[in-house]
Computed example of a mutant assay.
Amino acid sequence: MKKSITLVAAAIAAWGSVCSSAQAADLSFSIGQTSDSTTTYRFGAQFDFDRSWLQSDVGRLTGYWDGAYTYWDGDETSSNHSVSLAPVFVYEFAGENVRPYVEAGIGIAFFSSTEIENNDLSTSFQFEDRIGAGVRFANQEVGIRAIHYSNAGIKNPNDGVESYALHYRLSF
């Protein structure tokens, strides 16, 4: 447990140093579920890249840093906690009031326990892969997201786990 707390503290410190150079933070909340009926509650802060690429009449490529805390509430095993940091790339389609988007990213996560229901993660350190889609309007965003956690074969077994979630983001 002490090792997990040290890893979580290191991840938070790294996230803080990355985000200290950014402007204002957006806040997000999501609720999801895994295939093993574990409910996930995710609280996050996002810091936009403040850059656009491939801008056209169709849309633009942009992105953000996502730092998050996730609480994993399982049926069979005790609860789990994770913190994560990921760069996320977003293709935002053009629109005046409503702007659809798709997103993808790969980051890192640290778990307090290596077990989630029937999944043995083997290591507290995990990679976080995500894809998602949604709509942005005014200073808000609503979307769906699939996030996969795996240690990429660093240690076996490497069961991995996916969370499928609805999320809400508020920009300031």
Rank of each mutant, 00 (worst) to 15 (best):
M1L: 06
M1I: 02
K2T: 15
K2C: 11
L7I: 05
A13E: 06
A13C: 08
A13Y: 05
V18T: 04
S20Y: 09
S20W: 06
S21F: 13
S21V: 12
L27Y: 10
I31N: 13
I31C: 14
T40S: 14
T40Q: 12
Y41M: 12
D48C: 00
D48M: 04
R51H: 10
W53M: 06
D57N: 12
G59C: 07
G59S: 05
R60Q: 12
R60A: 11
R60E: 10
L61S: 09
T62S: 10
G63C: 08
W65L: 14
Y71H: 09
D73C: 13
T77D: 14
S78D: 14
S79M: 14
S82V: 04
S84P: 00
S84I: 04
L85F: 03
P87E: 13
F89V: 11
V90C: 12
F93T: 00
F93G: 00
G95Q: 07
E96R: 13
P100S: 03
Y101A: 06
E103D: 10
I106P: 01
I108A: 15
F110N: 05
F110G: 05
F111P: 02
S112F: 02
S113E: 15
S113L: 03
S113N: 14
I116D: 15
I116N: 15
E117G: 13
N118G: 09
S122C: 13
S124L: 13
D129M: 02
G134I: 06
A138F: 14
Q140V: 11
Q140M: 15
Q140T: 05
I144M: 08
I144R: 02
I144E: 00
R145I: 01
H148Y: 15
G153Q: 09
G153V: 09
I154F: 08
K155N: 04
N158M: 04
D159I: 04
V161D: 00
V161A: 05
E162L: 03
S163A: 11
A165N: 10
H167Q: 11
R169Y: 03
S171P: 02
